[in-house]
């Protein structure tokens, strides 16, 4: 069995340094990503402070079941990915490829459920920017703000999930094609960092848009 080892780039001393650099780079990138979301979270927090009542009603208006199912799907995906990493480190490539692909699949299912939810909202006449029938019946501006931030945050998150699914698919394919071994596990670990980050963001969105519905 030949296990491919990642190429050492000319400017690194050795492979562990190269792996360290890649990991560090990913962490820094994620710090940046976290602040991307924090901008939106700040918006949400500020508006929620302005309009606590309607935000609560808005959360209650969302579908708790779909949101919660989605949370579990994402978490399961993350679990798969952790297992995939373990499998690769244990040199069980086939299993690892399978688990990575399963993670990507979980992401896909998540996206489908999310899209269904959006479709429900649009059918009710809820569009970003306070457009649609729903806002004629509920003319308080806070409703528009709530749903605009809903679309903004979940949309931005969904973009990240989509990118993540793409990366996972590509990684699975790459692991399969290149017959990678444990030495390349750090690359999968980096993909994992990104994917777990995307999950964690959802773990914030879940309460903000599905759970915080009862008066304090």
């Amino acid at each position: 069995m030949n296990l491919a080892v990642p190429k050492l780039q000319h400017h690194f001393e050795d492979l562990p340094k190269q792996a360290h650099a890649a990991r560090l780079g990913m962490w820094l990138f994620l710090a940046s990503e976290a602040l991307f979301f924090s901008g939106l979270f700040t918006l949400y927090a500020a508006y929620r402070a302005h309009y606590p009542e309607i935000f609560r009603e808005g959360v209650a208006h969302n579908d708790l079941v779909l949101g919660t199912v989605n949370t579990f799907i994402l978490l399961t995906g993350s679990l798969f990915l952790s297992l995939a990493l373990w499998a690769l480190r244990a040199a069980r490539r086939a299993l690892s490829v399978l688990l990575t692909a399963a993670t990507g699949l979980a992401g896909l299912v998540y996206l489908i459920i999310k899209a269904t939810e959006w479709a429900h909202h649009m059918a009710e006449g809820i569009f970003p920017g306070g457009r649609g029938r729903f806002f004629v019946e509920n003319p308080e501006p806070a409703w528009a703000i709530f749903y605009t931030s809903y679309y903004g945050l979940t949309g931005f998150h969904a973009i990240h999930v989509t990118v993540g699914v793409g990366i996972l698919a590509w990684t699975a394919w790459w692991m399969h094609r290149e017959r990678v071994g444990p030495a390349a596990a750090y690359k999968l670990a980096i993909v994992g960092l990104y994917w777990h980050f995307v999950d964690i963001v959802w773990l914030f969105l879940w309460p903000l848009f599905y759970l915080l519905r009862n008066p304090a």
Binding site: G39, T42, L43, A46, Y47, H50, Y51, P128, G129, G130, R131, E140, P141, A142, A144, I145, T148, S149, G152
Partner: peptide, 20 residues
Amino acid sequence: FDWGLFDPARGGDPLIYQHL
């Protein structure tokens, strides 16, 4: 797209923009 997140006529708050 006329989202109106910062449009005071629609409940938005331009000051949040300034802070951010």
